[in-house]
Amino acid sequence: MNQVSHTAAHSGMALWAVLITSSFYAAAEVTGSVDPIFLTALRLAFSAVLFLPLVFLRGEASLSRSHLAGHAWLGLLLAVYFASLFEALRHTSVVTTALLFTLVPLMTLGIELRLIPSANSRGRIMPMLMGASGAALLIIGRAGHVVVSEPYPILVYAAGCLAMAVYSPLSQWLKKDSLRQRSPVGMTFWNMLFGAVFLLGYTFYDGGWRTAALLDVADIGWLFYLALFATLGTFWLLHRATASIAPATVISYIYLSTLITTACHWFWFKQTPVILEITGALMVGFGMFALFQVGKRRGSAAA
């Protein structure tokens, strides 16, 4: 797989953070009475269909046994994450899940050290801790409080966060062996397709598919927008970046997305920033800059 430059990978992930932020607002436009897991399955399925022509053009439409196993595992991790998120949200607040998700990059780093250790891993610990702490302050500052949750949703979503943390390092590890011929296009298509299949299977089991009758034309339009930009685009950018920069650094861009979301509330919704948000914004900014510099020095040393 052809690698993009260090700067291009980071620039792509900055765009990823913008697209992730936009997805929150677009998702809010879809009818709230439709089962969220079913909606996510549709998003993944629509995204895979949109990528199908490119998959045929690149000759990645066939699956060997090793390809099947690799993509199935990665698709299952996506399904576990989304299913756990929506199950947790039935019992706790968005603030609680958002705070838990700030731990995913650090969890990713731990798994990365086991699967694909690199020389600059220690140098990324402090910037990532700063970014995670800053993102937590942004979330708490915007919410104005921390909700004490019951153990059940925390344990459920923690399992989902672990699945998401495994996703990128496992993807990169598999690219060295069974999936080494897969491009970002092929990885995005097949992982999303398997994720959609697992999620659709779950909704048929629990009956969530029946809410499809509540979808209207506007909902379908928003779903295609989400499928094209917030799902297909973000997964392609993620797989494109992991070919050049470490998986834990890639997923750390969720901190930048948190900062962008908060900035939208400041400027779009005319909300006055509180001291926690300002402190968190500075910490995220310094943390992300430090991560960029650590990766840049590694790239220069390798050259």
Rank of each mutant, 00 (worst) to 15 (best):
A165D: 06
I220E: 04
S62R: 10
A61G: 13
V284N: 02
I275C: 09
T272C: 07
L19H: 10
V34W: 06
Y81V: 03
R182S: 13
S133E: 03
A14Y: 12
F267Y: 14
G110Y: 00
M288T: 05
R210T: 05
V250Y: 09
S84V: 03
I154D: 09
G287C: 07
T7Q: 10
L155W: 02
R65W: 15
L77G: 08
F269R: 15
Y205Q: 08
A135T: 05
F38G: 06
I278F: 03
T96G: 11
S11Y: 10
M1Y: 11
A227D: 12
A69G: 07
F86K: 01
T188K: 10
L113A: 14
R43G: 05
Y205W: 15
A246Y: 09
F101H: 11
G32D: 06
T234L: 02
L99I: 02
V284Y: 00
A158E: 04
F204C: 09
K176T: 15
W16M: 09
I139Q: 01
R180M: 13
L238W: 12
A212S: 14
F224S: 05
T40N: 04
F194R: 08
G12K: 01
V284C: 07
Q172H: 09
I275H: 14
L170S: 05
F46A: 12
G32H: 13
H239M: 12
D206T: 14
I220F: 08
A69I: 14
A41Y: 05
I260A: 02
G299C: 05
M13F: 13
V197M: 14
L76V: 07
L106N: 00
M164P: 02
P36F: 03
R180V: 08
